[in-house]
Design a protein around this nucleic acid. Structure first.
Lengths: 234, 234
DNA sequence: GCTTGTCCTTGCGGCAGCGCAAGTTGGGTG
DNA sequence: CACCCAACTTGCGCTGCCGCAAGGACAAGC
């Protein structure tokens, strides 16, 4: 198996204060894998044998209920760790990460985790920070879902997507991966119908510009004030 | 300051595989604090200078929105770590833990965290596991809030409370701390009115027995089938 | 260029659950 | 023991959002 170059991951905050030698040792145990759009890296409930790092692309992590309803738990961006069940002492994966766009992931076998932590506590500290942020996000989302009405939640979700996956363009900021109305609905606990209606309304006000699995934000300010709940109706 | 006895915490899973000497060293740096019912251990947004362990009692962790609405993020049970902002590299506390019943907490200064992790990676691993479970719980809650209607969510919340704070009694299982309808409402993203109505209905079916800040579950099976969404109306 | 499938839009009716408001109960306090 | 206040109950009207359903638009494949 081909060696993986250090430069691929050197810039990631996760490995910020890790010595070159340690990093090389870590990379030596990793494998790379290409995931075509629409395909899952692993399935919810599967036995967890590896943990992962997203190098390139974008993943949507979904969970399904026993009734078959689906929700999007989070979006994985390049540089993020995911599927680190071993760190959490779980033996199965709690969700399914599906490639929204063609992606490249790095994989390590479970056993590596222990030795990493032993040899390089700093990495463990970084990983913990990451999980902490994720917990924070989850609580934010719970708070939003509890107290805000649909339009505000959608505004918040779009703002978050802008920060995570925004790319400047002539007319505004584009969400840089295929994102359907259904996806947004599953992120905000509503239905695609409602999302569609909201986007239509926003589009007629010049706040966003939609399209098939596309979204472009033209007026971030307006979106922010909607998210704050300042009803600027007109 | 009086020494803290090792036996107080020895049985906690958090310290499971920690040597006596290490544990003693840890306890030497801790202080104890009594928190009367209704009082907060610290306030949301305050600068994080310490992290904590609940020894005895029960805490409700709340967050308030900018509009002043409140939600209960989680319940802290004896043996749980809380307020570990340092581990998450945060410099303020994201929520407010309030004593539901008179409580006793152990406190460490922030700086201790780093040295703990260095000296005893196993503890860091345990802490990570804890945070992982918490993340898991948060996602479960998000899923419930997204896909389930109010009565099911309340049923789930009550079942969770039973597992965390249930005490067997002659008539059933009692939730072992003062819990108002308002509290349940803030856990399930609804209003105290709706919770009150639901409890009344359940009480008339003999599933639970209510009271002022009290709750006793008489028929767990029925509650579970409600939580599963098996509409057993009659 | 036509077909096919997926994604999106929009109107309409219904209802779960919220908000208001008025009453009741129970526990603690002087 | 009487008072008071916080917690709880319950009826009623309203509405935000869902669910259904029908139709339109875009992209890919043949």
């Amino acid at each position: 198996m081909a060696d993986i170059d250090r430069s691929l991951v050197r810039s990631l905050p996760l490995f910020a204060n890790m010595a070159d030698a340690d990093l090389d040792r870590l990379l030596a145990r990793a494998t790379m894998r290409r995931v075509p759009a629409g395909e899952a890296v692993f399935e919810q409930g599967q036995k967890a044998t590896q943990f992962f790092l997203l190098l390139h692309g974008r993943l949507k992590v979904t969970q399904v209920t026993s009734e078959g309803q689906q929700i999007i738990v989070r979006v994985v961006n390049p540089g993020d760790l995911f599927g680190f069940a071993p760190a959490l002492q779980r033996d199965d994966y709690p969700g399914t990460p599906t490639a929204a766009a063609e992606s490249v992931v790095m994989c390590w076998p479970n056993e590596v985790w222990g030795s990493i932590v032993e040899q390089n506590p700093q990495l463990a500290v970084n990983a913990m920070k990451t999980i902490g942020q994720r917990l924070q996000e989850a609580h934010t989302r719970i708070r939003e879902m509890s107290t805000e009405e649909v339009e505000r939640r959608v505004a918040h979700a779009v703002l978050r997507l802008m920060d995570q996956a925004g790319r400047r363009e002539a007319e505004g900021v584009r969400i840089d991966f295929p994102l359907s109305r259904q996806d947004v609905a599953e992120m905000t606990a509503t239905t695609l119908h409602t999302v569609s209606r909201i986007f239509s309304a926003w589009e007629s006000q010049g706040i966003v510009k939609g399209g098939r699995q596309k979204l472009l934000v033209r007026d971030r300010k307006r979106l922010e004030s909607l998210a704050e709940g300042l009803a600027d109706k007109d």
